[in-house]
Design a protein around this nucleic acid. Structure first.
Lengths: 125, 125
DNA sequence: CAACTCAACTCTTACGTTAGGGTAGCTTTC
DNA sequence: GAAAGCTACCCTAACGTAAGAGTTGAGTTG
């Protein structure tokens, strides 16, 4: 049975491998405050938890929507806060994000269509 | 009957409106040589033809594939050349582009899926 | 009809932004 | 001591965003 204490923290390299994001990207997210490591070693190595991993995967799924990283920070903050406290103003903010996300989803679909058009154009050459 | 001479050239503004691209973007494409205007007025205004418009629309459809603008230039050159001359090395180059395009198309589809996952996650909050 | 006016449009130049990539030189970990 | 990580710095693409000056062409004027 794998106890919780078996893998309490991981270094940045493992996180990068598991999320398929680059070291540079993860460090960047730390710099701008999008995802700060849960700890550091004595020597200064970043330490991440499973929770951090989950959060980073969430960010990864968010990326195609093209939100600025700063907005992602805000959205994560909203989601976190909503879990403990169901403020109605937060609800509104979340709904706004959902609207934006759906809007972006439409654009993505549109882009996919354009890509298909273009590919068949290339093939017809 | 609308003769050819009725709208021989247009200014950048009209081109921007018709393609839904920004003035800045079109000027940028001029700067880097992706789409040079067919002419200039005495005073220096860029002048574009219907052919330029068609080319720009092609570029627009290409954009979702995420190719660097420089590669788009090359691809356009290949397509143009293939129309007059069917060199087999060009054919190969075109086929390579098609492969890359299909690859990108797969990524786009994947992104769309991730976006959907993310949206339903937001909705479940 | 030639000259003038004027708003709308366009020009170049130049710096700013976003989301990282890439390197160097040094330190920490295992 | 090799592998992995650190900070710090500069670099890039594809535009955005001013600032300040010049152009166009339709509509008066004289």
């Amino acid at each position: 049975m794998e106890s919780e204490t078996t893998r309490p923290m991981m270094h940045i390299g493992e996180l990068a491998e598991r999320t398929e994001l680059s070291l540079r990207t993860i460090r960047h997210y730390d710099e701008i405050g999008l995802l700060k490591p849960s700890g550091r070693t004595e020597g200064g190595f970043r330490l991440y938890t499973e929770g951090d991993y989950a959060r980073l995967m969430l960010i990864r799924r968010m990326k195609p929507l093209g939100f600025p990283l700063e907005d992602m920070s805000e959205l994560l903050r909203i989601i976190d806060t909503l879990k403990h406290d169901g403020g109605s103003e937060l609800r509104e903010q979340l709904d706004q994000f959902i609207d934006r996300a759906v809007e972006q989803r439409v654009k993505l679909q549109h882009q996919l269509d354009m890509a298909d058009e273009f590919i068949s154009l290339l093939r017809s050459q």
